[in-house]
C-alpha cells in the first residue's frame, strides 16, 4: 500500500469532523486539546494514511496538506 501523510493546520481547524468521516482508513481523530479559537482540532491518530486526499477535499477550512510516497519508477512495458 502506498504510504502518505497529512499535515493539518491546527490553528484554523474548526473540528467539524467531515474529514474524519471521509477517511477510508479511519486514521483521523479529534485532539484532546483545544486550539486558540476554542475548537478541538483534528489530527492524524493512526499511521495508516495512504495520501488519498479525501480529507483535504471535504475540509471547509482548506487546512489539510497531503503528501504521498513517490510511485515506484514506471515499468518500460507501460509505454504505448
Amino acid at each position: 500500500m502506498i504510504k502518505g501523510t497529512v499535515k493539518i493546520d491546527a490553528k484554523i481547524c474548526k473540528g467539524c469532523e467531515l474529514c474524519i468521516i471521509s477517511c477510508p482508513q479511519d486514521g483521523l481523530g479529534l485532539a484532546a486539546q483545544f486550539n486558540d479559537k476554542g475548537y478541538r482540532y483534528v489530527e492524524l491518530i493512526e499511521d495508516n494514511c495512504t495520501g488519498c486526499v479525501n480529507c483535504a477535499l471535504v475540509c471547509p477550512e482548506a487546512a489539510i496538506t497531503v503528501f504521498r510516497q513517490p510511485k515506484p519508477a514506471k515499468k518500460s512495458v507501460e509505454k504505448k
Binding site: K14, V53, P60, A62, F67
Partner: peptide
C-alpha cells in the same frame, strides 16, 4: 514524500469566517 494536495494559491491566507462544516468555503 511528494506534495499531492495543498491549499490553492488563489485562495488568500485569511482563515474562513464560516461556521464549522459549512459548504461555502469548500
Amino acid at each position: 514524500m511528494d506534495l499531492v494536495y495543498c491549499r490553492p494559491e488563489t485562495l488568500t491566507d485569511l482563515p474562513f469566517h464560516y461556521c464549522p462544516g459549512c459548504s461555502h468555503s469548500v
